[in-house]
Design a protein around this nucleic acid. Structure first.
Lengths: 215, 215
DNA sequence: ACACTATTGACCGATATAGTCAATAGTGTT
DNA sequence: AACACTATTGACTATATCGGTCAATAGTGT
């Protein structure tokens, strides 16, 4: 159907990066509701640009959606996957890396992760998944591939342990997000430390309950 | 603002229960998108009734929304909380009860839980939360209140352990839901057994890692 | 002065929206 | 049968929103 988009050759890439990201972040946020429900009016309002400009660059809502996916994919590749050290086979250490990276990315692209995770069940799915051959969620197993299973205690199934670990941090994250209603930047920054401290505590629990005793 | 709705005295309660639940389930499903985005046309289409009938009973979309919340609250009270045995202080046993009850309720009211959990961040929040004084999520801590902390190993913080347990089952549930695209009833029923078996396995893991050895 | 791109927002036809209403079907009462 | 009352329908309305267009203006480089 649609071929893979080369984002680097796209007209909008010559736009000032701050403005471009404002537009893409607005698109991520709005497309979170699904392709059909998303409104181009809302996107331009959120991005602070005119309606005409959006269509000047993208031509149609569908093109914008496909580009948003390609743009997010590019960011994930260059600012996430390539920065992850997959030689770290201790799953708890690797997760720690992932959390730090995700926090950084969430400052820059607040709704990008949510946008990517909605792809699997939305009507936009057919628009893009075929041309890319994968969905974001299919990448998750890769994040936990090739981990060192010898670190786990003998009675523990590593697969289930990794699931517990992953779901715990997913649950903790959403619990934090729903608690924070005000995007009061000073307030958020203050909670950032406790956030990381909490996570380290959970990591240490997992280390004691799942891993063999250190010698 | 709006006072608490007494659902038992509402006109619609004299309607045949099956039909009424069809309407309310359609409302739960549609209001999942938030008050504004929900469409009364979609609700009547889903419920298989005419537009006029909906407004005959509820007068306005806003009244319907408020009633839906009251209706769900009533169901939660009578078909969930009151059936839970809070004298079971073993948190893993209590969770097992909760899971079984939730599955039952999800057959009868497939979108009710989702509807209730969206209240906290939706525009409809202001419509109802004030008049009831609580949101659904504020009830969650009550579910885990007064548990027997002496069952836990000495090195384990019971609060954190309960969080891990709760988030694990939340994560497992959503993982299952995203996997099932087709509401193929026979297929779903077949997976039901594996579903419960998985959960029991996780429960047994938690029992071994968090609880003291049995004598 | 010229060419070209960036940017705007009023505007368009199409669609979707919440809510109305007159008409019909149904049910129970006398 | 006649009456009263409620249940139910779906065409209809007025408004809002939708994706997309376009002529005009601002800006930039030559």
């Amino acid at each position: 159907m649609s071929k893979k988009i080369d984002i680097s050759s796209h007209k909008i890439m010559s736009m000032e990066a701050e403005k471009r990201n404002r537009i893409m972040n607005a698109a991520f946020k709005e497309f979170n509701k699904g392709y059909k429900k998303a409104s181009t009016d809302s996107i331009v309002r959120e991005a602070g640009i005119s309606k005409g400009l959006l269509f000047h660059y993208f031509g149609s809502k569908e093109n914008l959606y496909e580009f948003a996916f390609a743009y997010a994919g590019d960011i994930m590749l260059k600012e996430y996957f390539e920065l992850l050290n997959f030689e770290q086979r201790d799953v708890l250490e690797r997760l720690w890396q992932m959390i730090l990276l995700k926090i950084d990315l969430s400052y820059k692209y607040p709704m990008m992760f949510d946008f990517l995770t909605t792809l699997h069940n939305e009507d936009g799915h057919n628009l893009v998944s075929k041309s890319y051959g994968y969905t974001f969620e299919e990448m998750i197993p890769k994040l936990f591939a090739d981990i060192d299973e010898t670190l786990f205690k003998d009675g523990i199934d590593p697969k289930m342990a990794v699931n517990i670990i992953y779901w715990t941090f997913a649950g903790y994250s959403t619990a934090q997000l729903t608690r924070i209603n005000s995007p009061d930047l000073a307030e958020v920054q203050k909670e950032y430390d406790r956030f990381l401290k909490d996570i380290q505590e959970y990591l240490s629990i997992f280390r004691t309950i799942f891993y063999k005793e250190e010698k």
